[in-house]
Design a protein around this nucleic acid. Structure first.
Lengths: 282, 282
DNA sequence: CAGTTTATTGTAATTAAACTACATAGGTCT
DNA sequence: AGACCTATGTAGTTTAATTACAATAAACTG
């Protein structure tokens, strides 16, 4: 936990002098990390050992250690203790908050993702006869994005927004086909059905969805980024970004697995776009 | 800049002993921040002043200051100095690297984004008669995502992947219409033309693209996230995520501007999805 | 309400860490 | 090979941090 938040949380339990120290630090943490214990003590109008005791109370080894923790807290650019957007936020605040909460989500997604599942997913994808990407609602654009990435790999891919087309696609699938499904909640009935149909037809189903959800249970492989809380104003934001980064990861794993020759091919695809672009020197 | 990257960048300019220090720190930065100058000197098998000189060479005030910088670097969760995926990376490495480079990109995007432009964009969007979202290639799914967000706001929106449809849409636009364009490079000829057409027909053009690009010059408002380098295996990854977060920011600004009643409406939209979902207790 | 106890804070001494000045070793260029 | 310069280490100095202890303030008890 961020040590600034911790101070805020525990401030009531502090003694009078310790509270003085806490206030000085909260008020200007930047100054705090660049001060010696003596100067900080003077600013807070307390003695040096008081500052030291304050540090220990926050489970740090001492003043220098405390400064380290504080520096880490500041580095994340989180002067906002509460990262949720609220009514009174101006553009500056909500912009910062959304960026920060997105970054925080990615961080926790990274920590929670099961690498062995990533590896298995890459295995399956590299060997796929055909890959289909499906998502509904907000996840449709995630599927679209996946299509775009894997399309460049010169593998048969498709992606339908239409639920009927999705069903038909799964009906016609066979062993070696991969169906990749995106859903934040993992509770959309239609998508769970799609997964069932796909598996009945021997396709491999890879889900990017939340752990232990109905959809997750239908998948052969499930990638479940743990995104603690969404900033959402009634729609998933951060979790969807996490899904996209997972696609990036899989695409990267894919290209690495395919080896250097394959990457030369990719370069050709990219170069083929050149005639449609303005020159750099413009 | 992250001090670890800085070390890596400057490592060639270091002397033999200083390089020893650099290697020890890169190898295990966590250990470094919890060591005294004496222990670190011993680990690197150099003298204390060498460590001190090393710190100063990196433009820090001294060893404690250096540790502070290092701690801040680590806090961002970037133990990988070299964030580019390379051949020999296993799943664990490339997963971590991609997540981290995405987070780093978001961080720099956040710092570089012009808040006044964000505010103007929100102004324009809230007053729009109609909003069109266009992108080509990889940016098509970004436009799709934007559509999905703003669609819920009960504003007339559209989004075409087809370049001809896009052109026709812009031909028919008039004052009060907003055209929002997504492009990483800002050099795709067809999209620049779209911007020209839209402006000729009195639409307001908002671009999410790189600074000073041909496209940027055609826009009324331009949001240019500064994404330093892409991890790309020949396609934009991080920059596209930054674009999506910008959409989140604009959507959030939009709802905040519209006030609380409007948010009740949003909740209704969300609740309308319930019958199509499995229950939480499943 | 006085006396006792306990928690809180500060003073002074100690220890540890960081830094500076200087000396020596190693390398380079003429 | 000798002079010079850079790089590195040693020892001493300064500064910062910590500890032990004393004093004060607050709280509690008879």
């Amino acid at each position: 936990m961020n040590i600034l938040e911790k101070i805020n949380l525990q401030i009531t339990t502090f003694s009078k002098s310790e509270r003085k120290v806490a206030e000085v630090i909260i008020d200007n943490p930047e100054q705090a990390i660049h001060s010696s214990i003596a100067t900080l003590a003077k600013i807070a109008d307390v003695s040096e050992p008081t500052v030291n005791r304050f540090c220990r109370r926050l489970d740090t080894k001492g003043f220098p250690d405390f400064k380290l923790h504080l520096a880490q807290g500041l580095a994340n650019g989180t002067p906002y203790v509460n990262r949720h957007v609220d009514e009174s936020d101006g553009p500056e605040e909500y912009t910062a908050k959304i960026f920060e909460s997105t970054m925080a989500s990615l961080n926790s997604a990274r920590k929670s993702i099961d690498i062995s599942q990533v590896n298995r997913a890459v295995d399956i994808l590299t060997q796929a006869k055909k890959i289909s990407f499906f998502g509904l609602g907000a996840s449709a654009s995630v599927a679209q994005d996946a299509l775009n990435k894997f399309f460049r790999f010169n593998v048969p891919v498709n992606c339908f927004e239409d639920i009927v087309m999705q069903r038909m696609n799964c009906m016609n699938s066979s062993e070696g086909d991969v169906v990749m499904l995106f859903s934040h909640t993992g509770r959309t009935k239609q998508l769970v059905e799609i997964a069932e149909i796909a598996r009945q037809n021997d396709a491999t189903v890879i889900g990017v969805t939340s752990k232990d959800s109905p959809l997750a249970k239908e998948c052969n492989i499930c990638l479940s980024p743990d995104v603690p809380e969404d900033t959402d104003l009634y729609m998933p934001m951060a979790s969807r970004i996490a899904q996209l980064v997972i696609i990036d990861v899989l695409a990267t794993g894919f290209t690495l697995r395919r080896g250097p020759k394959f990457r030369d091919n990719l370069k050709k695809v990219k170069d083929s776009l050149r005639p449609s672009r303005f020159d750099k020197r413009d």
